[in-house]
Amino acid sequence: TTVKLGDIKVTFDNPEKAKKYAQKLAKIYQLTVHVHGDTIHVK
């Protein structure tokens, strides 16, 4: 599962960890989390 934020891409083996990371980023940057299959976009 890949978390994308602009040019930053972080890949996790564990989808749950990816989701938590995405939510953490979203909170920090006051953005929202969008899940598209294996990719989680923070924008």
Rank of each mutant, 00 (worst) to 15 (best):
T1A: 06
T1N: 05
T1H: 07
T1K: 05
T1I: 13
T1S: 05
T2N: 05
T2G: 04
T2P: 03
T2M: 08
T2S: 06
T2V: 12
V3I: 06
V3L: 04
V3D: 02
V3R: 03
V3P: 03
K4V: 15
K4W: 15
K4I: 15
K4F: 13
K4G: 03
L5D: 02
L5W: 15
G6K: 06
G6L: 08
G6V: 05
D7M: 14
D7C: 15
D7N: 15
D7E: 10
D7L: 14
D7W: 15
I8W: 15
I8R: 10
I8Q: 06
I8E: 03
I8M: 11
I8D: 02
I8S: 06
K9Q: 11
V10A: 04
V10M: 10
V10K: 08
V10E: 01
T11C: 15
T11V: 13
F12G: 00
F12Y: 02
F12R: 01
D13V: 09
D13T: 12
D13Q: 11
D13F: 10
N14S: 12
N14K: 05
N14Y: 04
N14A: 05
N14H: 07
N14V: 05
P15F: 15
P15Q: 08
P15D: 05
P15R: 09
E16M: 10
K17G: 05
K17I: 10
K17R: 11
K17W: 10
K17N: 10
A18N: 00
A18G: 03
K19N: 08
K19Y: 15
K19M: 15
K20I: 10
Y21W: 12
Y21S: 00
Y21E: 00
Y21K: 00
Y21C: 11
Q23P: 00
Q23S: 07
Q23T: 08
Q23I: 11
K24M: 14
K24H: 13
K24L: 14
L25D: 00
L25H: 00
L25N: 00
L25A: 01
L25R: 01
L25T: 01
A26K: 04
A26V: 03
A26Q: 04
A26R: 06
K27G: 06
K27D: 09
K27E: 11
I28Q: 09
I28V: 07
I28M: 13
I28E: 07
Y29V: 02
Y29L: 09
Y29I: 03
Y29P: 02
Q30H: 13
Q30D: 11
Q30W: 08
L31D: 00
L31V: 05
L31Q: 01
L31K: 02
T32L: 07
T32M: 08
T32N: 06
T32V: 12
V33G: 01
V33A: 04
H34K: 08
V35L: 08
V35R: 06
V35W: 10
V35H: 07
V35G: 02
V35D: 07
V35Y: 12
V35P: 04
H36L: 13
H36P: 00
H36W: 10
G37S: 04
G37H: 04
G37W: 06
G37I: 04
G37F: 06
D38Q: 09
D38G: 07
D38A: 10
D38E: 07
D38S: 12
D38P: 06
T39S: 05
T39N: 04
T39F: 09
T39V: 13
I40P: 02
I40W: 06
I40N: 01
I40D: 01
H41P: 01
H41M: 09
H41S: 08
V42N: 02
V42Q: 01
V42A: 02
V42F: 10
V42R: 01
